[in-house]
């Protein structure tokens, strides 16, 4: 295959990965890795490096819009970034010692988990109970709901912090944003409103990915010829996705289609990993 054909295939594939990732909230990184490894037989380390860079692009791009709307909680983000960057650093170091088999099985498992999470019903819940720690860390805040500011508190900070440490390790090991784990920590454990959780998670993904990308870049995992079409494709796909989301409110059937596709990909990654084909 010539470089130009390779670039075009990756560009188109990355565009759809970014589009679906943005429509379902899963992120483009989780689809681009199976595409590169299963379809184009790219070495998994190169795939992880390229995916990680695309994650920084999409998260920074959409965080720019959310931050201005005032939904993102910068203090919660900064505080939890201590955990995610420390985790990502650890994950990038661990990546040297674990086998491709282990990475493939872990990746497949996280992929299936993310698909299930994307099907979950999104309920906005607001806790008014303000803990000592959340007051001390000034995490309690308010966010706009239909033009009115609604106050919210933050619960179970230690639990959320540890979950973020785990999310960071996964992100550093696999080159994905691990947004599903971050949302689970904030929305599920810390009882932060869903909208604040997703936008703040997105805000944190870029910094988390950067903490492990500085390692991968020096190890030669980020190959410019692979990363170029991946970053450009995923970013433009994500932009298209966010434009479609503005026009169509319900994407219920799409979530199901995507969840099934992702699960099939996950099983393929696990199978190929275990049989040594990756």
């Amino acid at each position: 295959m010539s470089v130009i054909v390779f670039t075009l295939i990756v560009l188109v594939g990355a565009y759809f990965a970014g589009l679906l990732g943005s429509l379902t909230g899963l992120g483009g990184g989780v689809v681009i890795i199976p595409l590169l490894t299963l379809l184009l037989h790219v070495d998994i380390h190169y795939a992880i490096g390229a995916a990680l860079i695309s994650v920084i692009a999409t998260s920074s791009g959409s965080a720019a819009a959310y931050v201005k709307e005032g939904i993102t909680n910068i203090r919660i983000g900064m505080f939890l970034e201590i955990a995610t960057t420390a985790g990502a650093f650890t994950g990038a170091i661990l990546a040297i010692y674990v086998s491709v088999k282990f990475i493939a099985v872990l990746f497949g498992t996280i992929l299936i988990f993310s698909a299930i999470m994307s099907l979950r019903e999104k309920k906005e819940h607001i806790t008014s109970a303000k803990s000592f720690l959340s007051r001390r860390l000034r995490l309690d805040s308010s966010y706009p709901v239909e033009g009115e500011m609604v106050e919210y508190g933050v619960a179970n900070i230690a639990g959320g912090f540890f979950m973020m440490l785990f999310a960071g390790i996964i992100s550093g090991l696999l080159g994905i944003g691990s947004g599903a784990l971050k949302v689970l920590a904030m929305d599920g454990i810390m009882r932060i409103p869903f909208k604040v959780s997703t936008t703040t998670s997105n805000f944190m993904i870029g910094v988390t990915a950067a903490a492990s990308a500085v390692v991968y870049l020096q190890r030669g995992y980020v190959h410019p010829v692979i990363a170029m079409p991946v970053v450009v494709g995923v970013l433009f796909g994500a932009v298209s996705g966010s434009k479609i989301l503005v026009h169509t409110k319900s994407s219920g059937w799409l979530r199901w289609v995507f969840a099934v596709v992702v699960t099939v990909l996950a099983v393929q990654v696990i199978y190929n990993g275990l049989t040594g084909k990756l």
Binding site: I82, T85, A88, A210, A211, V214, V215, L217, R219
Partner: peptide, 9 residues
């Protein structure tokens, strides 16, 4: 943390 990560790279 990011600087430490970069230096260990």
């Amino acid at each position: 943390i990011i600087i430490a990560s970069a230096l260990s790279g």
